[in-house]
């Protein structure tokens, strides 16, 4: 099994940390992983993306031009990455701020209203965990218990009291992801 994912959105949305948690979760279940960020002059409000690969065998290239799954969190990323999803692959997106919804007919499309759900909870910082939950509902490639272990590894200890909130956010994402188009 190899899963090649691009996660793309605004800097500050937690794109890179979501990828890191996913990568750590993979390590927790003995998978090979790679996490390759865009590291240009990104900043809060600019665009940010990360390529995450989880595999049962050695990861070859950390840089890819097509993906099994694209998780898209803003319009710029939709414009750039919709075309990079493999035929028959998955596109998961949040419609917040999206002016042009995905057009392709040869991929499976899911939507998660993560920004809206996050503001309902009163804690917009769990936005990325809602997205992660939605993704894990679609592709349960890592077990929830390993995600929690991954969270513990990637969060500094002083934030470990926030893990239950993150777990709830993951659940919220799992419960609210909607299938838009299936191929």
């Amino acid at each position: 099994m190899t899963e090649e994912i691009i996660i793309a959105g605004f800097g500050g949305q937690g794109v890179l940390s979501m990828g890191k948690i996913l990568a750590y979760s993979g390590i927790m279940q003995d998978q090979e992983v790679s996490w390759m960020p865009s590291y240009g002059p990104e900043m809060r409000g600019g665009t940010a993306n990360v390529t995450v690969i989880l595999s049962d065998s050695r990861v070859s290239s950390p840089i890819l031009n097509e993906f099994d799954t694209a998780i898209i969190l803003n319009q710029q990323s939709m414009d750039k990455f919709e075309s990079t999803v493999k035929k028959g692959g998955i596109l998961l997106y949040d419609s917040n701020g999206i002016t042009r919804h995905p057009q392709r007919k040869d991929i499976t499309i899911y939507r998660i209203e993560a920004a809206a759900k996050a503001s309902e909870t009163g804690n917009t910082k769990v936005f990325n965990m809602i997205v992660l939950g939605a993704y894990l509902k679609i592709k349960p490639i890592v077990k929830l218990e390993n995600v929690i272990k991954g969270l513990k590894k990637s969060l500094p200890e002083r934030y470990h009291n926030l893990i239950p909130q993150n777990e709830q956010a993951i659940q919220l994402g799992m419960d609210n992801v909607k299938l838009i188009q299936k191929v």
Binding site: A23, E32, V33, S34, W35, M36, P37, Y39, P62, I63
Partner: peptide
């Protein structure tokens, strides 16, 4: 190079 420096792996 920038790829190997910036990427995370096990």
């Amino acid at each position: 190079d920038g790829v190997i420096g910036q990427m995370m792996e096990k």
